[in-house]
Design a protein around this nucleic acid. Structure first.
Lengths: 346, 346
DNA sequence: ATTTGTCACGAAAACGTTTTCGTGTTAAAA
DNA sequence: TTTTAACACGAAAACGTTTTCGTGACAAAT
């Protein structure tokens, strides 16, 4: 087992100084061609590679970005990571991943673990618990220590930093617009409680669209679910929650849900009530998931463009890291959310 | 913007030496209670945290593990990451993620980027291209430099290292056993070409089960697909490939597929031929995916236990990193693959 | 013969820690 | 009064780099 070779070892072996070796390898003019050749040959032979940690310490720059997300077994978040990794790699950065598991304390701990020199900056999406507690001190601290943050998807106005979001409002609005254009008038909504910003915005988009078309929103058509429950593990429970919506409303002709699971479950429930999709009830979900495409009928959705968000976030962060200008001018990039039409709408 | 405070700054401010500060913070007996209090109070006030990079350099240990996978937008792999991250965090490690995107060169580059001091060891699953080329020199080099590797799922005999796999053979075998027990006799198989070890093993399990039940495998019931194609993006193409299987065989009463997508598509094709599932044709897939659960009918599958694999791999790696002892004795952990029965089997 | 200049290289500092070893001061023991 | 021991702290090395600055040797110019 040959350990990694260092400058010092090469220097000793060739009987020159460490400085000479370092310079020779970087082709400095200070070093004679003779010595350069000797050193470079030796280095190649022993497969020398500079130690990253030493470089990081010296340059006070790790070329690593930390990404903190609530959950990784999730189509949207993994797409974001893919986008981040792609850009990071292109631009010479590594990506270190931390999972908050939707928990405030894990988010804080994870950030502290990474903020102590391991990374140059963060890309993150806020956990549900943090959003509920509205405790953002860890973000403030990180930023005030000079470590930039880029937030995506689940962002918060209280923190000044670069952000990447999709246009939740507009996405929801055009989804409902579309349903209305296809003849729907009694459009149900399945959403989450309001503390998750995206749920709130999507709900507002739904409202706006109805208003614009002189349709009165009816509260009995709106179902707000407690998304702290892990419905993914208990599909039946979710369907039980949805069932009353159809039991007490027999005129529903379309349904919009703020995520894929809600939409899919609603579709199942509707089918179990004997409704035909899209003939009796049209359905649109909101997602970047994989279920919609494979559902039967396949489901129309508002697409979240996860990978694009990740790419954009990575560019924003790296730009900020590399441009010394250090402008205090933060931007919020809004990615358009477009409707993917499939079989669940007419 | 207050930069991160260092030992040096504290020392200067309190007019003591760096050593004293360091010792005071670690509660050394060498330091008087007086000084300890002073230093610790100051450190707390300025929220001092030791710089990770400096520690890594000093200790020649990064407490970071690198995980290289072919793809992250994939239910199985993201579950593995979750498992790795969970254990890593518990045991004080960070996780840095590299994606090979199924490409040999990206795998090599990614490993080299990380092997130069950034991490203490690898957890990886080999890319398809690497498996085809059978070029494993980068693994050998890494290991010979004293950096441990743990391979999972897609492993290879040629490399000596710890491994975590599921029992592909047994899993496939019991899936087919189950189909036979439920009365099936003409069991189709949809698999991949043999260079992906898991495909091969699963095919062998299928064969074994048939043999054990005195059923002759018929080549016309076996469909080998070229999995270098990205069928996920082109479901129609995949269904076109599967269609002939049903066109030329009207006696198929069950089907086993080596992954979720194949199984799901086959189910759709079967339905389009008018078959009832599971009455006419029973279906079992092989996966850790999310589609099976939500399909209609929901699909029976052999589960891969991705998170468990990740956890096990992380433990193996960290154990090796921390126990200098049982060097050179590598183990292969086999995770049982059990059948999850859903609606697509009787 | 002296000055100047170029060349080729080495010493040392710096990044932020931890740890070993030495040392000056004071109090206790002889 | 002298020796010894305990105490409290500092200097320095080490981890592996890069870079600034200094310097000795030699050749060219004065």
């Amino acid at each position: 087992m040959k350990r990694k070779v260092t400058l010092k070892q090469i220097a000793k072996e060739l009987d020159v100084s460490i400085s000479t070796v370092s310079k020779a390898l970087r082709n400095s003019v200070e070093i004679s061609d003779d010595t350069k050749q000797k050193v470079q040959a030796f280095a190649k032979l022993y497969n020398y590679r500079p130690n990253n940690i030493a470089l990081s310490l010296k340059n006070r720059k790790t070329n690593t970005i930390g990404i903190i997300i609530p959950e990784i077994v999730h189509h949207f978040f993994s797409k974001v990571i893919r986008g981040v990794e792609l850009v990071a790699n292109q631009r010479g950065y590594n990506v270190i991943v931390g999972l908050s598991n939707e928990s405030f304390s894990k988010e804080v701990i994870n950030m502290q673990m990474l903020a102590n020199g391991s990374i140059d900056g963060f890309i993150l999406s806020i956990s549900k618990e943090t959003l509920q507690l509205q405790d953002y001190h860890h973000f403030d601290e990180t930023i005030s220590q000079g470590m930039p943050i880029v937030m995506f998807d689940r962002v918060v106005n209280e923190i000044e930093c670069d952000k990447v979001v999709i246009d939740d409002f507009q996405g929801a609005k055009s989804a409902v617009d579309h349903l209305i254009a296809k003849g729907a008038r009694n459009i149900a909504l399945i959403t989450t409680r309001d503390y998750v910003s995206v749920g709130k915005l999507r709900t507002q988009g739904y409202m706006e669209s109805l208003m614009n078309h002189q349709i009165d929103p009816k509260s009995e058509l709106i179902l707000k679910l407690d998304d702290s429950k892990n419905y993914e593990e208990d599909l039946d429970a979710l369907e039980q929650e949805i069932r009353p919506l159809f039991e007490s409303n027999d005129k529903i002709d379309a349904l919009f849900a703020v995520n894929e699971l809600y939409a899919l479950s609603a579709m199942k429930v509707a089918k179990s009530f004997g409704y035909q999709i899209p003939e009796d009830i049209q359905v649109v979900g909101f997602t970047d998931g994989v279920l919609s495409k494979h559902a039967s009928p396949s489901m129309s959705t508002v697409s979240q463009h996860g990978q694009e968000m990740g790419e954009k976030a990575a560019h924003l962060l790296i730009d900020r890291l590399e441009n010394e200008e250090d402008e205090e001018h933060y931007q919020t990039v809004i990615i358009p959310a477009d409707l993917v039409e499939r079989e669940s709408t007419k």
